[in-house]
Write a protein that binds this DNA or RNA. Structure first.
Length: 566
DNA sequence: GCCGTTTTCGGCCCGACTGTTTTCAGTCG
């Protein structure tokens, strides 16, 4: 199987880890890490670029050496440089890096002094009291490690779905905001950038004095453990395992701190380089010329000071947004308020549930909703009965229109698992892969292409098939799928269920570039789950989508024309 | 290892917190 972008990124991350433990040049290590992030964020397959003999050194941060390594990985599936490093250091040693409190230097010390390369060996050494004797370690560090090793299996390195993180972070934010003397509390970090998963929560507060809020933070009932507590910064772990950092800054630094703690790291580094060239310094307290602060109270002011317009958080990944900002070509990103409809809600089974859902949809400002039945076990008689019920509902409902939708499985052969006559009675026909996610790339791609080309199909459901943290994306030629969708007028679903968020951001961007229309759907099973649309819009914004790229921002009559509906 | 309207060599973002330190290294974000 050809190496995917993620495979290549993993190789580079491993090389970076191993070089770091070896004590190699930190900037060399960073070059590998930057390359890994770049490749991961690329919508096109690097393997395809190699096949087409494109010049990889055109990519920012990829030079002759890394380009050659990419070609090697694509063509041979392995990388000699990594194999050499693995000979010097056991690959299990990388698991030690994920233990909180252990970085490359300490891992190297453990390996050199005690031949430790696994968490089990480390646990044994801790029990025997050997670790505290090592240079750079002590009793406290040993105790920290003992604790971390106990918890390692359950929480370390765990990432939380954005929606799950929101359920923890929003109440905590509200709790902190009630602290006397506190002006504002906001959530920064990858949460603010709407990444589909977050590793921790970064809270930022402005207050007169930091003592009260720090104490209140550490006393929050959900706090399981306080990892660090200083004057302006503290770190805790909640019962759920979610780690939360709180920073307190003066009001005059709020914008600079928000900008800084929203990241991403790669974006911040790039922005600071721009500042550096202008003879300025950017940190979390402001923008400085010499010792004089020239900006800091708002993000707009910070960006203006380094010659840039405001860049929405979701774009801050150093994936071209800085260049676009400099050129005045930032997208006008889609917002939740732009949505006029939702093209996939599971059809409720009772009239009461239907009306509750439509009420909620109205509150979300929607004008139309597609109720979707599964084609599985659906006989023509029942389908007709259901459609009559929807007609009755439409006759009664004030202003909101229900569209009749059906979801049909795409068989391994690419054929649809329902008759054309059944499908022709529905306005929205959603084709979905529900099995055989493991087909080889060519067959999987052909399977989707055939479904997309089917004249009855309105929309391709959750195109990559991923379940975040559970099931990887299908191996697909996604640019080919996206182009086919455009050519056949087939919508690409951005399914906003928190565990799907599928279409992922990188492909949203490809779809935009190729001119393929996207529908952001909640996939809601009940009224409350219409909230999913928020996560869908977040991912769409990460994918640079504007309202005009998203079909369900259109009024219903436009949508009907677009889909050639009566 | 990458990169260059200052440069093909010499740079490469910046600060808080902790613990082990007698002035700072390591980790983290």
């Amino acid at each position: 199987m050809a190496a995917s972008n993620r495979d290549i990124a993993r190789v580079f991350d491993e090389i970076a880890d191993l070089l770091e433990i070896e004590g190699d040049n930190a900037f060399r290590v960073r070059a590998y890490r930057n390359a890994a992030r770049l490749i991961e964020g690329l919508g096109v397959s690097v393997g395809d670029m190699v096949a087409k003999q494109e010049d990889l050194t055109e990519l920012p941060g990829i030079g002759k050496d890394l380009a050659a390594k990419i070609r090697e990985i694509v063509e041979t599936g392995t990388c000699a440089a990594r194999e050499e490093l693995r000979k010097k250091l056991p690959s299990t040693i990388l698991t030690l890096l994920r233990i909180p409190g252990l970085g490359p230097k300490r891992v190297q010390t453990l390996y050199r002094a005690l031949d430790i390369s696994t968490p089990e060996q480390l646990a044994a050494a801790v029990r025997e009291g050997k670790v505290r004797e090592l240079p750079g370690f002590g009793e406290k560090t040993e105790a920290l490690l003992r604790e971390a090793l106990g918890a390692a299996a359950s929480t370390a390195g765990q990432r939380f779905l954005l929606a799950a993180a929101a359920r923890e972070a929003e109440p905590l934010r509200a709790y902190l905001a009630e602290t006397p003397g506190v002006k504002q509390v906001v959530i920064a970090g990858s949460y603010r950038r709407a990444k589909e998963t977050v590793g921790d929560i970064d809270l930022l507060a402005t207050a007169r004095g930091s003592k009260a809020i720090m104490e209140r933070f550490c006393a929050y009932p959900e706090v399981k453990q306080v990892l660090a507590q200083g004057d302006t910064r503290a770190t805790v772990v909640l019962r759920s395992g979610l780690q939360v950092d709180l920073r307190v800054v003066p009001q005059s630094s709020f914008g600079a701190a928000l900008y800084y703690f929203t990241g991403s790291k790669a974006h911040n580094v790039a922005a600071r380089r721009i500042a550096q060239r202008l003879g300025l310094k950017v940190n979390e307290y402001g923008v400085f010329r010499g010792r004089r602060r020239i900006a800091g109270d708002t993000e707009e002011a910070v960006l203006r000071a380094i010659g840039l317009p405001y860049i929405p958080p979701e774009l801050r990944e150093n994936l071209g947004e800085i260049e676009a900002a400099q050129a005045g070509r930032l997208p006008d990103l889609v917002t939740p308020e732009d949505l006029r409809g939702d093209l996939r809600v599971t059809a409720p089974s009772t009239r009461a549930a239907s009306e509750a859902l439509l009420d909620a949809a109205r509150q979300h400002g929607l004008d139309y909703v597609a109720f979707v039945l599964s084609a599985r076990d659906l006989d023509p008689g029942r389908a007709a009965e259901w459609r009559a019920e929807i007609d009755r509902l439409n006759a009664r409902s004030d202003g909101i229109v229900v569209l009749k939708g059906i979801e049909v499985e795409i068989r391994e052969s690419g054929e649809l698992a329902a008759s054309e006559s059944l499908l022709s009675d529905f306005e929205i026909v959603i084709a979905a892969v529900h099995d055989r996610f493991d087909l080889p790339r060519e067959r999987q791609t052909a399977r989707l292409l055939q479904a997309i080309a089917h004249p009855a199909v309105t929309m391709l459901a959750h195109p990559t098939g991923r379940l975040i943290g559970t099931r990887p994306e299908m191996d697909l030629d996604m640019p080919a799928v996206i182009r086919a969708a455009r050519d056949h007028g087939c919508l690409l679903e951005l399914n906003a269920q928190p565990e799907r968020i599928d279409l992922p951001d990188v492909y949203c961007r490809v779809a935009k570039d190729e001119g393929a229309p996207i529908a952001i759907n909640s996939g809601a099973q009940n009224a409350a789950e219409l909230e999913n649309l928020t996560w869908g819009v977040g991912q769409a914004r990460r994918g640079w989508l504007e309202a005009r790229d998203v079909v369900n921002t259109r009024p219903l009559d436009h949508l009907r024309r677009l889909l050639r509906l009566p």
